[in-house]
Structures are given as C-alpha cells and as structure tokens.
Simulated assay, not measured.
Amino acid sequence: MKLKTEDFLVPEGTKVELKKWPTLVKEFYTSKEEYEETLKKSVEALSDLQQLLYASNKYAVLLIFQAMDAAGKDGVIRHVLSGINPQGCQVFSFKHPAATELAHDFLWRTTCVLPERGKIGVFNRSYYEEVLIVRVHPEILKGQRLPDSLLDEESIWKERYASITDLESHLHRNGTKIIKFFLHLSKDEQKKRFLERIDKPNKNWKFSLADLEERKYWKEYMHAYESCLGATSTKHAPWYIVPADDKKNARLIISNILLDAFKALDMHYPEADEKRQEELKVIRKRLVEDE
C-alpha cells in the first residue's frame, strides 16, 4: 500500500466529521523489520534536510501535535525526530498556564518560544488547547480574567480561531513553515492503552485519575476538534488527521508528511562567491603546508 500524504490532509474550508476519518488504516509495512528499516531511512533523510534547513537559514519549521491522551504524541516525537540534531530543534510541552502566562493573551506563552530561522520547533500540545480543553471546560475562561464583554459563547471560539489563523498567516509570511498533526485515536484503543499503563509498573507514572475524568468528555472533545480542525486548516498551515490506533503506522505516516513538507521548501546550501572561493583556496594552502 502506497503512502499518500494528501490522504491525511484536511483541505482548507472543509467541514470535519471525525467519524468519517479512520483511526486505523492498512499497514504501510509488512513486518517489524520493514517498519524499522523504513523509519530508519526517513530519520536519516530528515536529519539531512534539517542540516540543509540550518545551512540555508531561510525558514523556520513549527510542528504542532494535538491529540487525546494516550494517542502517542511523545512516541512520535521520540522516534520520528530521533535523528535531529538537538542544537537545531526544541520541544515544548504546554501544561496548565502559570500565573504569568494567564496575565497575557492566550497566544503569548507559545509566541515566546517560536523557532528561529534555520531551526525546528515542536509543540507537544499548543495554543490550540485554548479552543479545545477550554471549550470543553469553559469554566477555565474565568481564570483568564477576560472582560465579561469578551466571554460571549456564541463568538469567542470563532474569534480565537481568527486570532490563531491570523498568527499562522503572519508566521508564514515571515518564513515559518507550520505543519499540524491531530493523532486520531479511537475510544476503544485509548481504553486499551490506559489499562496497559495501569498493568505495567514502568508505565504507571503515565496515568492519573484526571485522565479517566477527561475520558468522560470524549464526545465534547470530538466536537471541539471537529470545529477547530475545520476552521484552522489552511493552505499555509494545514492539519493532517493521522490514524493513531497503530503507533508504528502513525509514525511512518508522519515521517512521510514531514519529508514531503521539507522537500517542498526552497532550500539550498549557500554558494561561495568568487571572493569566498579565493579565501578558501588560501586557507586550504595553509592547511596543506602546515606541519
């Protein structure tokens, strides 16, 4: 089965119904060995492209991962980006906002850590939490100390979508390539993974009662994701809905999407002009003559 990036793309202006998007598709590998070899090649290719990204120094790349608990975000980041030079990549995981962050607009804390040119930034959860968990739990808005006139349930989410897409358009115009992934996990598979976290001592730390409580809001989260994905997937900052019930398959899909996205950038190693070439000749001569 050939892996096609466009099969997972949410086209701009699409009304998303997650029940029509699979959480499991036919494997893009026939054995564990083939999976490992395919992923290894992708990791090596991404490493080369990251070096080119750094050398060309024209673009920044921002990767955003959103999902329900246990969908495999950490594993994707760990495996797919395992060959990336740590000096050229930063990963940020956003939890409940701290007091200082709540004193600013909802985009402030993520804007402060956007990647610079030549580097990759990874957001494990992101500003999208402000239209997901906050929408499912609107009481969180009260802690953000917004004026009452801005708390209209009919408009606040559309306004936040607009703020997000405006930011992403601005970043695109300034050389940041944004790629967004929603790891689409089924409720049954989440239950299976939660049980595994309980049954395996080395995974106990990954599970808490709060995870179980959030599971009660599954339908509300799916509605929030549907609205968000449809409203904020754009040509320059697209969403990809990745079937996540098979972790290995999800990693191959995401690595393929990343490779396509990097290759589409206009990146070249800097060419040495005549003056630089002469300088290099002098340096080379000195090195050859150096005892």
Rank of each mutant, 00 (worst) to 15 (best):
L3N: 03
S93T: 13
H96P: 15
Y221K: 12
N85I: 04
A237Y: 14
M1N: 09
D266T: 03
E101W: 09
T30Y: 05
K235R: 13
H79S: 01
R125M: 10
K142Q: 13
K41R: 12
N85R: 13
I198V: 09
S82Q: 04
H104K: 15
Q51S: 04
K158W: 04
E27T: 11
K73N: 10
E33P: 00
K95Y: 07
V16I: 15
M267C: 13
H236Q: 06
H172N: 12
T30P: 03
I283H: 06
Q190S: 08
L209M: 11
V242C: 01
G88E: 11
K2C: 03
L63K: 09
H268E: 13
A261R: 14
S93E: 02
D245A: 04
R117V: 09
L49Q: 00
P147S: 08
K158M: 08
D245L: 02
V80G: 00
M267G: 11
T111W: 15
Q50D: 06
R197L: 00
E291A: 13
Q277L: 14
V10Q: 02
D7S: 13
D199K: 14
Y161E: 04
G72H: 09
G118Y: 01
F92L: 10
G175I: 05
W108P: 00
L252P: 01
K216S: 04
D246H: 11
L46S: 05
D290R: 14
M222Y: 02
K281S: 10
K142T: 05
A250N: 07
A244V: 03
Q144P: 02
L46W: 08
A250Y: 00
F28Q: 03
E153N: 13
C228R: 02
Q277H: 08
E214L: 11
E129Q: 15
V242Q: 01
Q144I: 04
E279K: 07
P11H: 06
L107F: 13
T30M: 05
D148M: 11
D245S: 06
W157M: 12
I140G: 01
S233L: 05
L258A: 05
A60K: 07
G118I: 11
